[in-house]
Simulated scan of single mutants.
Amino acid sequence: MRAFRSEPAGYVAGLDATEREVLATVVADVAELLGADRFEATTAAARGADAPDESATRSLLGLRPLPAVVPAPVDPAVHRLLPDASDDDDELAAEFRRLTEGDLRRVKIDRLRVLWQALVGDAPDAPAVGHGAAPDDGEGTDLWVRREDAVDLAATLTDLRLVLADRLGVESEEDSDAIYEALDRRERGEQDPDRSAREVLQDEIREYLGSVFAALGWLQESLMAVLLEDLP
């Protein structure tokens, strides 16, 4: 993985095939948590004349009657993505959720879909986030984002990390530091040799999620760095 850099076409980051596959899986999983159907690759023909008009579909969805009550998400990871508007006023929080949650879910899912399409090479002809050959080194296919869409990508990376943080039990800076320390111990080969098979499996799953959490954080930091460099 190579950090985002500024190019004439936008901002470009280097991801190899395995990294793109891992991130695409996480993106699709988070979209499903938000209520999306499983993302699937489409062909150009499928995006053609026979495909339903997306704007019309959204308009119809927007005209559906609002339910009387929209309960807060049960899954704590989804609750992090769709937090309560107020911790003190339950009635205000419920009404705000009723009026805004549907649109917020759609916005987040749309952003996740754009990133997923870029990662699997299924982006439309003019994607907000795309994939293209690395301009300087030619090493495979890189992830790029137009300057005007970089903030949306940064927000999506935040959503992905919020879900992973919940699954990892990260509630504080100390919890986050512990994830990085565990990854460092793994790199140094300092795991306890007397762990049971169950403990080994649990550690491997946690290390896998921790690696993705750390990689997304590093990628997001590199994106924010180039955005700050381009400020007037």
Rank of each mutant, 00 (worst) to 15 (best):
R161G: 04
V120G: 12
A182H: 01
V22L: 06
G14H: 14
E148H: 14
P127M: 00
G132K: 06
L227D: 13
R206E: 08
A36C: 09
P193S: 03
V226E: 06
G169V: 00
P65T: 05
D137L: 05
W144Y: 04
L60D: 06
P73G: 11
R186L: 15
L115M: 13
P127R: 03
E181S: 14
P76M: 01
L33H: 15
R146D: 13
L153N: 06
G130N: 12
D16L: 09
D149R: 10
L66G: 03
V74G: 13
R38Q: 15
G140D: 02
E229K: 10
L81D: 07
S55C: 00
V114Y: 11
V226C: 02
R105M: 01
L143Q: 05
D125L: 05
Y11T: 08
T141H: 04
G217E: 09
P127E: 07
R105K: 09
H79C: 12
D53F: 07
D194T: 03
V30F: 04
R64P: 03
L219W: 08
D75C: 10
R111H: 12
Q220K: 12
D103N: 11
L227A: 10
D175T: 15
R58Y: 10
I109K: 10
V129Y: 02
G130I: 01
A118V: 02
L201E: 15
L23V: 14
R167C: 00
P73N: 12
G130V: 03
L119F: 02
S176V: 15
L63G: 02
D103M: 10
A46H: 13
E171D: 06
I179G: 02
